[in-house]
């Protein structure tokens, strides 16, 4: 006999508690707003200008788009990935281990799953914020369609959650910061290079192209780039399904791993 599933209502306190963690992290981000916004806007702007205009004079149109537009729509995706990953690796680890913020929170009614869920939501938000900064720059430069940018926001938030969940799995195993360098070098950089951010997938060899279809960033780009230039994505349901599946599996895995790490 299987146990009856608790009603969805039963999960509401967890969501409320997770939001307390989310608000804590948001408040800290808010305190450091100016320097973090400078980084959010400054770096992508430099990249766009340097590569878009500099490199763009050499290559002109890529995938049917001016290179700077191709690049801006790609970087919006990769920045959601990078920001969410960075937050869920370095910042989450800092709060979990050296800073003992989790220990302090764990003395309250919040359990480890509540804290992890809060961290996940926050890192996803951080991904969205960074992607939004790129979109604002791209809108100011007249590179993307305003309506499309609105449609892209929920997708970029989901992407943030997806990469946050994957990064949390790594953080759950981490014993120090060194470990995260591997994650960036061995996981994120290859993803960045084969997912159509800087150049179209079509220019890759066929096996790589097929492999890239299994990777989450490919699906983010496949959704977001058409949206941003005012077109419909070619296969939105598949893309959303892949991203949701990654988020749920990695998120559930991270929960189990963190609980095991803390409750032994």
């Amino acid at each position: 006999m299987t146990e009856p599933r608790p009603p969805l209502r039963a999960y509401l306190p967890h969501l409320r508690r997770a939001l307390a963690v989310w608000r804590r992290n948001t408040a800290v981000w808010h305190k450091l707003l100016i320097p973090s916004l400078l980084a959010n806007f400054g770096e992508p702007l430099l990249y766009l200008l340097a590569f878009g205009y500099g490199f763009g004079t050499l290559v002109h149109r890529v995938g049917g788009l001016p290179y700077i537009t191709f690049l801006a729509t790609g970087i919006a995706c990769s920045s959601a990935m990078n920001a969410a990953s960075f937050e869920a690796l370095y910042s989450t680890y800092t709060r979990m281990d050296p800073q003992k913020t989790w220990e302090g929170i764990h003395a309250t009614p919040l359990g480890i799953p509540d804290i992890v869920l809060g961290e996940l939501l926050w890192a996803g938000t951080k991904g969205l914020i960074n992607a939004l900064a790129i979109l604002i720059v791209a809108l100011a430069l007249g590179l993307v369609a305003p309506a499309g940018a609105l449609w892209a926001l929920p997708v970029l938030f989901l992407s943030g959650l997806c990469f946050a969940a994957l990064a949390l799995v790594a953080t759950a195993f981490a014993r120090g910061y060194d470990f995260f360098t591997y994650y960036f070098t061995l996981v994120l950089t290859p993803l960045l290079l084969v997912s159509g951010v800087f150049f179209p997938l079509a220019s890759l060899p066929r096996p790589v192209r097929l492999g890239a279809r299994l990777l989450p960033l490919t699906h983010v780009v496949s959704l977001v780039r058409p949206l941003l230039i005012g077109q419909s994505p070619p296969h939105p349901l598949t893309d959303l399904a892949v991203l949701t599946a990654y988020t749920l599996f990695a998120g559930a895995g991270a929960l189990v791993l963190f609980v095991r790490r803390f409750e032994r």
């Binding site: 804590r24 408040a27 800290v28 800073q99 003992k100 913020t101 220990e103 302090g104």
Partner: peptide, 10 residues
Amino acid sequence: GQSDNLDPDF
């Protein structure tokens, strides 16, 4: 707690 886990970000 035994260790200082005040929140240094605040």
